[in-house]
Amino acid sequence: MTDARDSILARLRAARVDSRPEPSVPVRRFSWSRRETVERFRIGLESVRAQVHRVDDDWPRMLATRLRESKVKNLRYGPDGPLGEELRAGWPTDGPELIAHDQPIEACREALFTNTDAGFTSCLGGIAETGSLVLWPSRAEPRLLSLVPPVHVVLIEADRIVPTLHAMMSEQRWSESMPTNALLISGPSKSADIEQTLAYGVHGPEKLIVLIRGEDRPTGDRFAGQPEAID
């Protein structure tokens, strides 16, 4: 093994390379208002069939109603997650069953794969340009919670939506400490492997429900699509 490593590196080092300056990575900036940022985020997600709802602090009740309507029998959530307590406290007694997801996967694999209708997580933020949710799964909200159940519900605070991935990575200094797993999620699972025709709900969640909390409702302005500046 060491042999392969050393000989590969030796061959690469022997190559003639003209020194290259660091590429200046021009950053695409968009000067969107808060409202426009949120609106683009919503439009992006809806264009790939995510269900997006504006919510207020009564969101657990509203969510419970929605889920019940779509025949969801239970919802798994991380009780120690940022929104765990809020979800539990606001959950109506006649809502779908709430299941605390706080065991190692080895202890709940069967239940997660075969007997869970929906999973709930918080998220780190959102990206307006592409309509993406940013998740950093954690002990409190493990990786499979947003992946295995057929329905994934996410609550995002409107003020955590930024224009671009680059903006989020640099504002939050991702490069200094990446988590085990970081995810961008843009819609429910889909495939176009047959005849380039989109079909939703392949191996990941068939349904993605995004709750946006905070910020005024938009007026429905239309926006031009190009970056304001690239520098």
């Binding site: 340009e129 592409t130 990446m178 085990t180 970081a182 995810l183 961008l184 843009s186 699972s189």
Partner: peptide, 13 residues
């Protein structure tokens, strides 16, 4: 504009 999932893995559990 982006794939449904962008999965960034930086280590085991």
């Amino acid at each position: 504009p982006i794939t449904t999932y962008v999965n960034l893995i930086s280590g085991p559990r």
